[in-house]
C-alpha cells in the first residue's frame, strides 16, 4: 500500500501537468456557465448537464485512460523491473488517472456552481459531481482493463470507443427494441436487470431520481422508481455502479499481474 501511494504521488504529479486536463476543466466551466447564461431554471441546467455527464465524461475517461496506459508503457515496464509489486504499479497508475480527471471535474463543475448557483442547487450539484466522479472511475478502470488485456494500442482504443458507443448510444435502442417487441410479456424485471448492466443508465437513473423528473427518466428510470422508492432506487443504482467500478478494476489487475511485457 505504501509503495502504491508513493508511485501514485509521482504519476499524479506527471498527469497534473498535462494540458488536456486544463482543457477538460475549462470545458466544464464554460458549459456550466453557458447553461446558466441561457436559462435560470436550475432543473433545466441540471438536466442538460446530466446528458453531458453521461456522454462526455465516459468518452474522455476511456480515451484519456487508454492513452495514458500506452504512453506510459516504457515507464510501466521500468517500474516492473524495480522492487515493486506489479499490483502497486497498476493501482497507482489507474488511481492517478481517475484522481486527476475527478479533480478537473470538481473544479470545472464546482467552481461555477459556487459563483453562479443558488443554495437550493447545492445537493443536486454535489450529487452530479459525486456521480461524475464515480462514472470517471468506472470508465478509467475499463480503459486500464483494455490496456492490460491488449498489447496493441489501436485495438484497445477501438475497444474502448466501441464500449462507449454501446453504452451511450446503442444500449437504449436495444432496450427500446426489447420493450416494443415483447410488449405483451411481463418484461419489467428483465429490463431492470438489463439496465443494471449499463453503468451510464445507472448514473442517469441516480440523477433523474433525485430531480424526480419522470418525463425524462425513460423506461428504466420509471421502472426503478416503481420497484424501489426514490432513495432505495438511488441506493440500489449506487451499489450496482460500485460493482461496475470493482469488476473491471479487479479484472484488469488480475490480467496485469499475470501478463507478459
Amino acid at each position: 500500500m505504501n509503495q502504491t501511494v508513493k508511485i501514485l504521488k509521482y504519476t499524479a504529479r506527471d498527469l497534473f501537468r498535462s494540458r488536456i486536463l486544463i482543457l477538460y476543466t475549462l470545458f466544464f466551466m464554460l458549459l456550466w456557465a453557458g447553461l446558466f447564461y441561457f436559462t435560470n431554471d436550475a432543473t433545466k441546467v441540471s438536466i442538460s448537464l446530466i446528458h453531458v455527464v453521461t456522454a462526455v465524461i465516459p468518452l474522455v475517461s476511456l480515451i484519456f485512460g487508454t492513452l495514458v496506459y500506452y504512453n506510459s508503457s516504457d515507464f510501466i515496464l521500468f517500474m516492473i523491473t524495480q522492487p515493486v509489486e506489479r499490483r502497486s504499479v497498476y493501482i497507482a497508475m489507474n488511481t492517478a488517472v481517475s484522481l486527476i480527471l475527478s479533480v478537473s471535474l470538481l473544479i470545472g463543475l464546482g467552481l461555477p456552481s459556487l459563483i453562479l448557483g443558488t443554495v437550493s442547487m447545492i445537493p443536486l450539484t454535489l450529487l452530479i459531481i459525486f456521480t461524475s466522479v464515480l462514472v470517471t472511475a468506472v470508465f478509467s478502470n475499463i480503459a486500464f482493463f483494455a490496456g492490460a488485456v491488449s498489447q496493441d494500442k489501436v485495438r484497445a482504443l477501438t475497444f474502448v470507443i466501441f464500449i462507449w458507443l454501446f453504452f451511450a448510444v446503442m444500449y437504449d435502442g436495444i432496450i427500446l427494441f426489447i420493450t416494443v417487441y415483447f410488449y405483451e410479456y411481463p418484461i419489467e424485471i428483465p429490463v431492470l436487470i438489463f439496465s443494471a448492466l449499463n453503468p451510464l443508465d445507472l448514473a442517469r437513473v441516480i440523477l433523474l431520481l433525485h430531480i424526480d423528473h419522470s418525463a425524462l427518466m425513460g423506461y428504466t428510470g420509471a421502472l426503478y422508481k416503481s420497484v424501489f422508492s426514490g432513495a432505495l432506487g438511488m441506493g440500489a443504482a449506487f451499489l450496482l455502479l460500485l460493482v461496475w467500478f470493482t469488476v473491471p478494476f479487479l479484472g484488469g489487475m488480475r490480467v496485469f499481474n499475470r501478463r507478459d511485457f
Binding site: Y10, R13, D14, L15, N71
Partner: peptide, 26 residues
C-alpha cells in the same frame, strides 16, 4: 539495475523526480 534502450521517464517528470521516487520506493 536495468537500463532500457528507450527512456522510461514520464513526459512531465524530471530526472530528479524519478530519482526521488526510486529512492522513496527503496
Amino acid at each position: 539495475g536495468y537500463v532500457p534502450q528507450q527512456s522510461a521517464l514520464p513526459a512531465n517528470l524530471s530526472i530528479e523526480d524519478m530519482v526521488s521516487m526510486l529512492m522513496e520506493l527503496r
